[in-house]
Amino acid sequence: MTRQSPGPDPQKNVTPEGDLQVSGRRRNLSAAQVAAMEEKIRKIEFAISLVLRVGVILSVSVIAVGLGVMFYHHGDYASITGHTSYKTLTSRTTPFPHSLGQLRHSLVHGDGRGIVVLGVFLLILTPILRVAVGVVSFFYEKDIPMALVTLFVLFVLIASFFLAGL
């Protein structure tokens, strides 16, 4: 990982405008094309940051509701000093939903911990949804190389869930 200096003038900080005669560039882009591409990236950035914010706010709200429900149902958990130790909830043998079937079951019964798991699930889905939005955005902006790259990432992510047995 040594620092190379592939360019003729690596000391220079700012790219000269219209720097197009670089070797190795296979897609020749004019200054106008680069500007158009940057405008597209702005739009994609907005869509992606929106997805992330909505996902984060939604999941944290569901988690908070789940915690609230759990403490409401188990008054002894909610005291500051008491005999109930947190270790009953955090040991290796503590039961909690860890498959979609169990999750559905505990949600039907209004179990607070089930709601928390649902919130955590939404949190896990947020980056995956973010990749999906990337795929759609890149196709929409006709940036086919990047669209295919992100589509591959989305495919691997979905495959990971199927291979895990969900």
Binding site: R113, V120, G165
Partner: peptide
């Protein structure tokens, strides 16, 4: 995204305890 790719496995193995998460 990297973590999400292995989150499914961790979830199924019962490593994601809601009260810690």
């Amino acid at each position: 995204v990297t973590a999400a790719a292995s989150a499914g496995v961790y979830f199924i193995r019962g490593q994601i305890d809601p009260i810690i998460a």
